[in-house]
Nucleic acid binder design. Sequence first.
DNA 1: GTCTATACGATGATAGAC
DNA 2: GTCTATCATCGTATAGAC
Lengths: 223, 223
Amino acid sequence: MAAPAEPVRRGPYAKTVERRRHILDAAHQVFAARGYHAGSLREVAGEAGISLSNLTHHFPTKEDLLLAVLEQRDRDGAAAKAPAVGLRENLLAQARAAGLPESGAVGFRDRLLAQARANESIPGLIALYAVLSAESTTSDHPGREYFVGRFSLLRSAYLQEFEALREAGRLRDGVDPQIAASSLVALWDGIQLQWLLEPEKVDVAAHLAAFLDLVILPQPNLR
Amino acid sequence: MAAPAEPVRRGPYAKTVERRRHILDAAHQVFAARGYHAGSLREVAGEAGISLSNLTHHFPTKEDLLLAVLEQRDRDGAAAKAPAVGLRENLLAQARAAGLPESGAVGFRDRLLAQARANESIPGLIALYAVLSAESTTSDHPGREYFVGRFSLLRSAYLQEFEALREAGRLRDGVDPQIAASSLVALWDGIQLQWLLEPEKVDVAAHLAAFLDLVILPQPNLR
DNA sequence: GTCTATACGATGATAGAC
DNA sequence: GTCTATCATCGTATAGAC
């Protein structure tokens, strides 16, 4: 999954990129508030102050627009400092920006739980990701490639963390870092879904903490 | 969540229930193949060999039809013997039908993993549940109550199992049965999602087994 | 009760003029 | 690039036959 970063801009069409960014902001707002299916292109166009056809000129299909929103979010999240604007991809970026080593036992648990709690303030966006990731599994969905890459990125990021913990002797015996990494991603997604349905009854951070306490040893494992 | 079992049939309209069942089968097939949004009512009507108006006569809205499909599935699953036709609700029903105690350490792990492997044969249906459960989190979705009840049922079923394990001294110290139960549901949902995206790279049963091995002790914990 | 025919408003998408 | 106009399809509603 080699990321081509940014589509080529053939000339100094600064106005176009600005317009696109403006549209993406409007679309992000509409999708987060109403969801993907409930939010219409006409509403996005109205929010952006342009016509529907002008919108579809920049983004031919609704799904193209959606994917552009998601990718824009990833770029913003990677560059941002506050955890609230990111979801999970920027955990590593945050560590890097803070001058910490990219992986390692120090702070992994704290950073993860902080991100989990920050997510509680953006239930609309969490729900959007939940719906989209599930929808993307259906045949030939255009968002499929995005979510395959997203899950792959998350798994490898957590894999780094768990391997660093193992080298520090802080991984419980018998725990496979690979399984632990994908399980952490899965647990997070799943418990967020339950939280979305019953926010007052489910504590996402508590579940993640319990899982990490099962996998990570408080003291180095001397053998 | 008191279940009123079956809507009242005022008279001996056997033809109506038969027709409804026929429609539900067609709708189930269409939704599982195309998803909820992509599958249209006209396609369901065509599949069932009836007119669109006749379809909407029996099920006024698309969401009514969907909920009826889900409930029909639950009834079938509870009455069926093969695990392949059920998802997870029928774990207890299976144990009951097999003459086993409803909860207890014996066979819980095996039954769970068998169900996980059986689910691999029905990816379309797993994807449907994944999409619907995520969609139901959006505001005032008619499927919301169903999935709230479904998650509640699953959690309490697993809670019974983990509490029985704890009484048998086979639960790891520090493990909260409540957290373990909701975590198991969450892990299952989440890892199934990753499996739907990359079936060849993700082993659902292996992840569930690894989690249970973390929580459940192979030998009674003598203290 | 059961079924059909027809039509309405909204949606995503397209074609062509300026 | 931006617009107006138009299209097929969607879920839904209504009127009425047997």
